[in-house]
Design a protein around this nucleic acid. Sequence first.
DNA 1: GTCTATAGTGTGATAGAC
DNA 2: GTCTATCACACTATAGAC
Lengths: 193, 193
Amino acid sequence: MTTSERLVESTRELLWERGFTGTSPKAILQRAGVGQGSMYHHFTGKSDLALAAIRRTAEVMRATADTALSGEGSACDRVRAYLLRERDVLRGCPVGRLTMDPDVIADPALRQPVFETLDWLRGRIAGILREGCERGEFDAGLDPEGTAAAVVATVQGGYVLARAAESPAPFDTAVRGVLSLLAARATGPAPTA
Amino acid sequence: MTTSERLVESTRELLWERGFTGTSPKAILQRAGVGQGSMYHHFTGKSDLALAAIRRTAEVMRATADTALSGEGSACDRVRAYLLRERDVLRGCPVGRLTMDPDVIADPALRQPVFETLDWLRGRIAGILREGCERGEFDAGLDPEGTAAAVVATVQGGYVLARAAESPAPFDTAVRGVLSLLAARATGPAPTA
DNA sequence: GTCTATAGTGTGATAGAC
DNA sequence: GTCTATCACACTATAGAC
């Protein structure tokens, strides 16, 4: 791993744990085990390094979500696979948590990958649900866009509830709830959600 | 307004805007228009002041939510009233945003009011849905706990999506989605969600 | 390309005058 | 009760040696 890569990885971890405001260059350097000079040689500063880290994290999250969503089965099965995939719930979403960071939201360059990732996810799920509707997998009138937004929001909000409770339980309950509501709209032999 | 109250109000605003880590005593004092001595006279430090501010914010949020949830109508109507109540969506939830602040979550005293508020909200909505089930307002098998968690998570996650997009639209879409899923479970003449 | 040294500013808290 | 002065330390960035 190059010095540059080590810096990006350390930044990714710290942004996830502490956010942008809560992460100092000093902490990044200590975790990466490099001196200050290296950071300012490879990057123009904290924001530039954060941008590289956020872009990488967004890329990883997108790939992970797409794997779960691209599996076999009905639209409902694929959304279920996404919702029930393994997660380190108490750590929260490395992309979503950045939206609570005013310095990230205020900087268009930093906000863009955050927006693009969540927007892509919403659109991906909406597309799957729309296909499901066209195939008659759901009863008439299911709102693919609204449902997709609710699914993504449930995950993001589930992290909030779990971190407040210091327990993954509220996350799991919320996921169970939205899955149950969705499964009730599926036609055919109702799978136990 | 007393000096102490001014300090708490300034802290509430700043915690909402910038979180605990992103808020300095200096910023609080400037906004409140008082000197440093006043703060350390009334409070032991930043955390103590934040605790007073968080408790007050939690109290306000609980009252606001309870007003919307205590209205007339069916269980579905009351949850709808809560979901559709006016919100400054792009500011996010003043309680929920604190869960992304590692220093808040790490301090049991600061985390407690955050947890209690969100847990109360979940329980309140679950109770309303349970009553609705008992009155036959929903078709059999609606999961009150799961649905309530999904409703609260959708709101919290809706803020995340809205802030990422710098637009309230994704929040509104998610709320429409979860409401549509819930309304489909209501018996009788389906109200257009 | 990486290091240490240094600078200037801000943070969170204390001391002591009024 | 409120103010200003001061403290020790951390933050972000730059300079310049190696």
